[in-house]
Amino acid sequence: DTAEQLTPVLLDGPREESLQLVSELKDSSCSCAVDVSTVWWEAAGCRELRVVTASESTVSLWEPLAPDCWGKVYTWHLREIPVIQIISLPDTCNLVCVALGELEIGEIRLLLYSSETDSFKHSLVKTGNIKAVVGLKDRRLVSSSRAMQEQQVEMVSLSETGGSKDRQTLMPPEETVTAFAEVEGMREALVGTTAGNSVVVWNLKTGQLLRKMHVGYSYPASICHRAYSDSGLLFVVLSHPLAKESESCGSPAFRVVAFNPVATSPVIRGCIRPCRVSGAYLEGDVWDTAGAAVLTSGAVAVWDLLQGRCAAVLPPGPAGHWALARWATGGAGLLAGHRDGTVHLYRY
């Protein structure tokens, strides 16, 4: 429904199995696209899904104007520190969250529209040596940062107007947290991966660190994307950006790993390797049980993680290699982007 709302007409173009090209937008002023995302936006009583694009110094908000026609609503200019990531805030309206920094995140800012002053503005949420950050439902933001030898893990609840309502400190693990992921359907549970290749679990209400479970040594530098609790087991979707492509067995872009959180030794009980596609994982995104990744071959591949099968492949086109693959919020489609600022929206 949301995809229909965005652009009702299909373009002629590549139809890669279960992916259908719906529309394209091109930021002609963008020299190097950094990230792309979507956000719910409500204006004049109308709520619609808008696209957000980011370059190093700008973040732009796009609205659907007509079939296959996107218009730039506003561009925030952030010239002091480069933009490196758009942080998705699920189910949140009229707020865009971005991470700025050089090699690592130094600032997290909210970009928003103020009806009081009838103007677009941005506000600072957090500064520091931020290693990982995730946006959660109900306008919550969790981040890990390092100051001297100390690691701080903190959840910030945001107000509708972009302020910080509440801050909760979470117990840090000894190892540096490299990524966070929400546990589907469990509002107070959060998982993370660590530099020591472990999965950790927190209670967000109490701040307790509940478990630390080692992933094993087969694939280092695991990054968590999503987790699900089912039948007493915790299933965690991991990617391995540092995994080397091997000719003999390929490189798994994602793995779904199951843990028994209450077992004394919560050993990995099973792991699903999605079907192999040429190229190793560069970066990607998971929504519900669908994983999408940009591969070193320049293609974007989409997997059904429950069945472990590859659902679609977008080969690199005339515009060159794909650089970005993101699910639209609410599963409204897949956004695939090139570095030149071209973004294709696909229905999945």
């Binding site: 509940l210 609790s229 007493g232 087991l233 915790l234 077992a263």
Partner: peptide, 23 residues
């Protein structure tokens, strides 16, 4: 895997671990 392979399973693992973990 059989249940014995997995060890004891708790459907309320989150509540159980929260009751046991240090505050």
């Amino acid at each position: 895997c059989s249940e014995s392979d997995l060890g004891p399973i708790s459907l309320n693992w989150f509540e159980e671990l929260s009751a046991e973990a240090p505050p």
